[in-house]
């Protein structure tokens, strides 16, 4: 078995502890506060993805290095889902991923909610 130096910044010790939201609109742009183990502000991505069998989609949370707070929290905006017209909520995964080396945290789930369309309103307009 390999022995890892858990104190080394390169060791795979990325971890998402807590998020203030686990669902948001399919259009993206929801602001999320994420609490995590130590990250480097210019070497971290938040990767949203679906497994290969569901299309192999990935997209990244939107934030700048200044949104990384003291190495232990990140405030970011969700990316839009690849398809904005969904009928039902879709659950995907997100994880922390180092830009260099590419190691990842365990994933958390995130659910995209369909846009709230006022169907009656739409139909009323159609009838005019």
């Amino acid at each position: 078995n390999p022995i890892y130096d858990s104190k080394s910044p390169n060791a795979s010790n990325l971890k998402i502890s807590r998020m203030d939201k686990t669902c948001g609109t399919v259009m993206g742009g929801d602001e999320i506060f994420l609490l995590c183990d130590k990250v480097q502000k210019d070497d971290i991505d938040i990767r949203f993805y679906e497994e290969e069998e569901e299309g192999g989609w990935e997209a990244f949370g939107d934030f700048s290095p200044t949104d990384v707070h003291k190495q232990y929290a990140i405030v970011f905006k969700t990316p839009p889902y690849h398809k904005t017209e969904i009928e039902r909520p879709v659950t995907v995964f997100l994880q922390l991923k180092r830009k260099k080396g590419g190691d990842c945290s365990e994933p958390k789930q995130f659910t995209y909610i369909p846009q709230i369309l006022d169907k009656e309103e739409v139909q009323r307009k159609r009838m005019k």
Binding site: R18, D20, F33, L35, K38, H69, K70, Y72, A73
Partner: peptide, 8 residues
């Protein structure tokens, strides 16, 4: 209290 820098 998360890592001294955040509180829920």
């Amino acid at each position: 209290v998360h890592r001294q820098i955040a509180i829920v």
